[in-house]
Amino acid sequence: MNKQNKQNKFSPEVRERSVRLVQEHRGEYPSLWAAVESIAPKIGCVPSTLLEWVKRSEINNGAREGLTSSERDRLKALERENRELRRANEILKTASAFFAQAELDRVLKK
């Protein structure tokens, strides 16, 4: 199973409801992890998955340090664009060198 399938096993609504459940009942447990461990089986996911959802929600809401989901998506897009531009630049450098050499050969044959 690839990462995309794992991410889509639970709908956004289920994730949001699960995170809200943890946040609403967090005070009833000695720690965030204890709350997550108690609630995760009721949702049908492993505690580490639910904990990631809670952390992601806290980051997106500004309650925890880190890049928001939209910032992460934008960063990934920029990194992808940067790779593509570097690749295109290398192709252009190679082509430029090829044509420069061809022109030099043509001039020297005269």
Results as ranks from 00 to 15, higher is better:
residue 87 R to W: 08
residue 51 L to M: 03
residue 73 D to V: 08
residue 60 N to A: 08
residue 46 V to E: 05
residue 107 V to A: 14
residue 22 V to I: 11
residue 21 L to V: 12
residue 95 A to M: 03
residue 98 F to R: 04
residue 22 V to C: 01
residue 37 E to W: 04
residue 51 L to P: 13
residue 82 N to P: 05
residue 33 W to T: 12
residue 102 A to Q: 05
residue 69 S to E: 14
residue 103 E to V: 12
residue 67 L to D: 06
residue 92 L to V: 09
residue 69 S to H: 03
residue 108 L to D: 05
residue 22 V to F: 06
residue 4 Q to D: 14
residue 73 D to M: 09
residue 17 R to M: 03
residue 100 A to E: 13
residue 103 E to Y: 02
residue 33 W to L: 11
residue 95 A to T: 11
residue 17 R to W: 12
residue 104 L to E: 13
residue 77 A to R: 12
residue 96 S to C: 07
residue 11 S to H: 02
residue 95 A to N: 11
residue 4 Q to I: 14
residue 76 K to G: 11
residue 4 Q to P: 04
residue 12 P to L: 04
residue 48 S to L: 11
residue 57 S to N: 15
residue 4 Q to Y: 11
residue 14 V to W: 08
residue 35 A to R: 13
residue 27 G to S: 09
residue 29 Y to K: 02
residue 58 E to P: 04
residue 108 L to F: 05
residue 106 R to F: 03
residue 73 D to L: 02
residue 78 L to K: 04
residue 25 H to K: 15
residue 50 L to E: 10
residue 101 Q to R: 02
residue 20 R to Q: 12
residue 84 E to N: 06
residue 26 R to N: 01
residue 96 S to H: 08
residue 35 A to W: 05
residue 96 S to V: 00
residue 80 R to K: 12
residue 30 P to V: 10
residue 64 R to G: 01
residue 77 A to W: 05
residue 84 E to T: 07
residue 10 F to Y: 01
residue 96 S to G: 14
residue 9 K to V: 03
residue 54 V to F: 09
residue 40 A to S: 09
residue 108 L to K: 12
residue 64 R to A: 08
residue 66 G to Q: 01
residue 69 S to V: 06
residue 71 E to N: 00
residue 76 K to L: 13
residue 99 F to I: 06
residue 64 R to P: 11
residue 106 R to H: 10
residue 40 A to N: 08
residue 38 S to H: 02
